[in-house]
């Protein structure tokens, strides 16, 4: 009792925070789990129906489409959105003029700051077949007819991958630059005296020094694959929905638009399970590496 009294102010301070997590994270998690085993009705009772909702999801061919899309688009972003910032950071590091470097950093960081509504809207506009900047440039370069980037199966996924990588490139690039800057300069000096050329410096000193940041970035990107929502929800349209809809969009459509909440929660628990496994795997790989 004495202990509780001594720390009572601290516990009291913690109370609102715990309440928030209980009401808006733990309870919804539990509620969702229960809902996924129930037949959802707005009014009246909601009987338990065992695994029916899960089976419905697993028997829905569209679920496999969105699963495939999630892995393809997410995988694309994982690769392009990982390699591009590293290349960018290495190239930027080769620039001698500090002012120029600063300006580039400032500019490439901008898209990260803006919402997907803004970025998605701008890209839809830029890629538009009538008068969009990209198509105007392509026409000027000799393309004979405008490309319908956002209504064709061939381009839709790539547009998603590249716009996402474009948006986050500057931000991740700056993370890498920060760790390049923290490399001990005497390492470069010593290597130069030994006659190493620029490529060898990058290959032998800079890249290995980026290793731990690479792991962090990979982990962060990995976690965000399965929760992708805003970008796709904003940039999709009926013509390409089949090729770009991801799992979270599926959940939203099923739960909020069709009011099929049992099925929707079942789908999201499949995702939570996959996230859990993915996180565990990544952690094991990274630990193992250490």
């Amino acid at each position: 009792m004495n202990v509780i009294k001594r720390y009572s102010t601290l516990y009291l301070m913690m109370l609102p925070i715990l309440l928030y997590f209980i009401i808006f994270t733990y309870y919804p998690l539990l509620r969702g789990l229960i809902m996924s085993f129930q037949q959802f009705r707005l009014i009246g009772d909601t009987p338990f129906i065992g695994l029916d909702n899960y089976l419905k999801v697993l028997r829905d061919p569209f679920f496999y489409d969105v699963l495939k899309n999630t892995l393809q688009i997410g995988g694309g972003i994982l690769i392009v959105g990982f390699v591009a910032p590293i290349v960018m950071a290495l190239l930027l590091n080769e620039i001698a003029q500090r002012k120029f470097k600063k300006i580039i950093q400032m500019v490439i960081y901008l898209p990260h700051l803006f919402s997907w509504v803004v970025i998605g809207g701008i890209w839809i506009f830029m890629l538009s077949p009538d008068g969009g900047v990209v198509n105007e440039i392509l026409l000027a370069l000799g393309n004979d007819r405008p490309i319908h980037f956002l209504s064709s199966e061939a381009y839709a996924k790539w547009v998603m991958i590249f716009s996402a990588s474009w948006k986050e490139m500057g931000y991740i690039c700056i993370l890498f630059l920060a760790s390049i800057v923290s490399i001990n300069p005497s390492l470069f000096e010593a290597a130069r005296i030994d006659g190493a050329n620029r490529w060898q410096l990058v290959r032998r000193i800079t890249l290995p020094a980026l290793y731990s940041t690479m792991k962090v970035v990979l982990l962060l990107n990995m976690m965000s694959i399965l929760r992708m929502f805003d970008q796709i929800f904003i940039m999709r349209n009926p013509a390409i929905a089949k090729y770009v809809d991801v799992i979270m969009v599926y959940t939203y459509e099923k739960g909020i638009m069709e009011f099929n909440m049992g099925v929707a929660t079942a789908a999201s628990f499949i995702v939570i399970g996959m996230t859990f496994i993915l996180t565990l795997l990544t952690r094991i790989v990274i630990r193992y590496d250490n």
């Binding site: 715990l18 997590f21 009401i23 808006f24 994270t25 733990y26 309870y27 919804p28 998690l29 509620r31 969702g32 809902m35 976690m223 399965l226 929760r227 929502f229 979270m248 959940t251 939203y252 739960g255 909020i256 909440m261 929707a264 929660t265 999201s268 628990f269 995702v271 939570i272 996230t275 859990f276 996180t279």
Partner: peptide
């Protein structure tokens, strides 16, 4: 650890029950 655990649960994945709550 109960706070760390909340970081593992993406808001997107519980959007339906969050709506209900």
């Amino acid at each position: 650890s109960s706070i760390l655990l909340t970081m593992m649960v993406p808001h997107e994945a519980i959007m339906i029950p969050l709506y209900i709550v």
